[in-house]
């Protein structure tokens, strides 16, 4: 076997390693699951009766849409450490610093897991929260942040936080501006088991040819 053949084999080994290095390292580095609040209904309801009504506070109901992005080509398991009544969380800092936001919700302290398909899954619903002043007719001035906490199982077997994007609302003089964070959307390249086998065999054969060739050269 001549030198050019040997070079050819080295290139043969290098190409797949270079091409697929992203695949080999991707699981540990790229968040496969991501979440964001993708739509907020600007007509926010003020609730003035019912079980949750409190005359000393104003009760708001905000309708929204959540997106869960699975960047993988196959189903992914999302792990919830507990089961929250309202999965979207909100906090706020107000211009009037005496105001406080208090989100309603109940939690079941049992772990659970859910399967999400590849791509974007949309969830619709609402959240409820009080602001500690009665008779408000709109959201008070300030900055509001909404997010959908989400976890996946890490390769080490523990629950790892996934990518959580924040949606911000700014209210100035009663005017509401909403800033949605966008997903960086790309799907992980699919490495089927067939391709893997072909890849491994090619590498092994190439290595073996090189070893034999070296030995032959030495012997000669």
């Amino acid at each position: 076997m001549n030198k050019s053949m040997e070079k050819y084999l080295i290139v043969l080994i290098m190409i797949p390693l270079l091409l697929f290095s992203s695949i080999f390292s991707v699981n540990g580095e790229v968040p496969v699951i991501a979440s964001r609040v993708s739509k907020i209904n600007e007509n926010i309801d003020i609730i003035i009766s019912g079980d949750h009504y409190n005359p000393n506070k104003t009760l708001f109901e905000m309708s929204l849409e959540v997106e869960i992005l699975n960047r993988d080509n196959k189903n992914q398991t999302v792990i919830e450490l507990d089961i929250p009544e309202y999965v979207v969380q909100i906090n706020a800092s107000f211009v009037n610093q005496s105001l406080e936001l208090e989100q309603l919700g109940m939690v079941i302290d049992e772990g659970a897991s859910y399967i999400y398909p590849s791509g974007i899954t949309k969830e619709n619903g609402s959240i409820l929260f009080y602001i500690n002043q009665s008779g408000l007719s709109q959201l008070p001035d300030g900055n509001y942040t909404l997010w959908r906490p989400i976890n996946t199982a890490s390769s080490l077997g523990w629950v790892a936080p996934a990518e959580v994007l924040l949606t911000n609302i700014t209210v100035i003089s009663g005017v509401m501006n909403i800033y949605y964070a966008d997903f960086v959307i790309y799907t992980l390249p699919e490495l089927s088991s067939e391709i893997s086998i072909v890849l491994v065999i090619t590498l092994l054969i190439s290595c073996a040819i090189l070893v034999v060739n070296r030995r032959r050269t030495k012997t000669a």
């Binding site: 079980d51 949750h52 959540v66 089961i83 929250p84 009544e85 309202y86 999965v87 979207v88 109940m106 079941i108 969830e123 619709n124 619903g125 609402s126």
Partner: peptide
């Protein structure tokens, strides 16, 4: 029985805490 809701379903029955 305690009431519970989430983004998808509402259980209107039971007590509030």
């Amino acid at each position: 029985d305690i009431q519970m809701s989430n983004l998808f379903k509402t259980d209107p029955y039971g007590f509030e805490f």
